[in-house]
Design a protein around this nucleic acid. Structure first.
Lengths: 235, 235
DNA sequence: CGCTGTGTTGATCTTCTTCAACCCGCGTGG
DNA sequence: CCACGCGGGTTGAAGAAGATCAACACAGCG
């Protein structure tokens, strides 16, 4: 099985009683629709660094992230690596497989994730006669597109400082916590997100810490001074 | 009417007999489907610099580009401008309005364009009972997503030279001509596409011309040395 | 105990930005 | 008709920002 590295199969999903059903792809389904799900939807848990799928693979599933965080990675001919998007809570990834296209990215787990692996045949069956599901799919596609464009404008434009500020602000709002706290990634990954080197990423973070824009609570967990960061990006 | 600047209304579209129907959004429609198009689909032509729509507007139409080229522009809080995507032949833009979301970009014509303005109500009506149209819509969304991600990896990564090479190669392949010829934009726009300044854009182009990677046939029209450019990006 | 991977920091070099001057083609108004 | 100004493009010189290379700290682990 290629889904290596600490995969934990949690059993088949019971979509009908899914705890996050209202926020999730199948929100609009009717009771009767669940009868027509014959191919099993697996319920999976992954630990950091697990590889969900690889760019170029012909996929037969889409994935709904019920909990966690992962990175979508692309490579250039010269070997450069760029992280083009993150997927978190209630995001759907691998949509391209619905169109018969191979996966466009490596999908790698960043934080422990719980997700459902849905065979594309299930989605296709449900689609006939489910305008709500269509609508929901389009919404996911649009979400991915908006995210991707935000990465271009916010995380690939301006100085390293500005990009980092944008990244941090994104992270604290998506974590949606009462406290402005986020978990940071390896300097290497931060570099690949912002289009800068590991070293500059490190230096910028050091500078932010010196200025108290950023405060390390425990390893990889940081508290950020949102107003200060906002000044940086609108200057 | 806000669609200012030399708009030319060409009459109502006759989708049934559209010359590019096979490549276009409505490719999968049946004869009978055309009966149910009650709201008019307008057939428009725009000259360069015309503004199709503006970011933030609540749109009531999507647009199919039958011919031409336009840029999709986003702005940062600090006023920076980035071109996040180009749309050309047979691309569909403004899809977000189908979801009730406001337009995410300014859409500005770069080269004389012929396009159809389709009311979202028409698309929504046709969608019920037209899986092919759904499929086609998803394809367009995925295309936009792929494009957007390619801009991140190819046009916002590496040195100015590499980005320019990527841009030129993209342009000559999309033009799909026998000759490796493309029409270039203002230095300002090139800068906004590559995330560099007008001046560096100018310098890089000058350098390419000196090295004969690039040859100006007539104003704004260039012939490029594809192999040479390929070396640049894979070095 | 030493090794490895990750992060940090310094010194130097390259690249890009910034600011300024200038050219040229074009249109406008005197 | 010509002078002028304007916008777009080019080029130079200076400086800033980031990349690169190298050394080192430190934690985790066999």
């Amino acid at each position: 099985m290629k889904l290596s590295l600490k995969e934990a199969w949690q059993g088949e999903s019971n979509c009908r009683n899914c705890t996050v059903r209202t926020t999730v792809l199948f929100a609009g389904l009717h009771e009767s629709d669940f009868e027509s799900i014959h191919t099993p939807i697996d319920d999976l848990v992954f630990e950091p660094d697990a590889l969900l799928y690889r760019a170029g693979e012909q996929g037969a599933h889409i994935f709904t992230l019920r909990q966690g965080l992962l990175k979508m990675v692309q490579y250039l001919p010269d070997g450069t690596r760029r992280i083009v998007r993150l997927a978190g809570n209630s995001d759907v990834i691998g949509l391209e497989s619905l169109l018969g296209e191979p996966y466009q990215h490596d999908a790698v787990i960043l934080q422990r994730s719980e997700l459902c692996r849905i065979p594309i045949s299930v989605v296709q069956n449900l689609c006939s006669g489910n305008p709500d599901l269509h609508q929901e799919l389009m919404r996911r596609w649009q979400r991915a597109l908006s995210e991707s464009e935000a990465w271009l404008t916010e995380l690939s434009t301006g100085t390293a400082r500005q990009r980092m500020a944008h990244l941090l602000l994104r992270l604290v709002v998506t974590e949606a916590q009462p406290q402005p706290v986020c978990q940071l990634f390896s300097r290497e990954d931060i570099g690949a997100m912002l289009g800068i080197t590991m070293e500059t990423a490190s230096r910028v973070i050091a500078e932010f810490k010196r200025n108290n824009w950023l405060q390390e609570l425990k390893p990889t967990y940081y508290r950020c001074d949102i107003p200060a960061l906002n000044v940086l990006i609108s200057a």
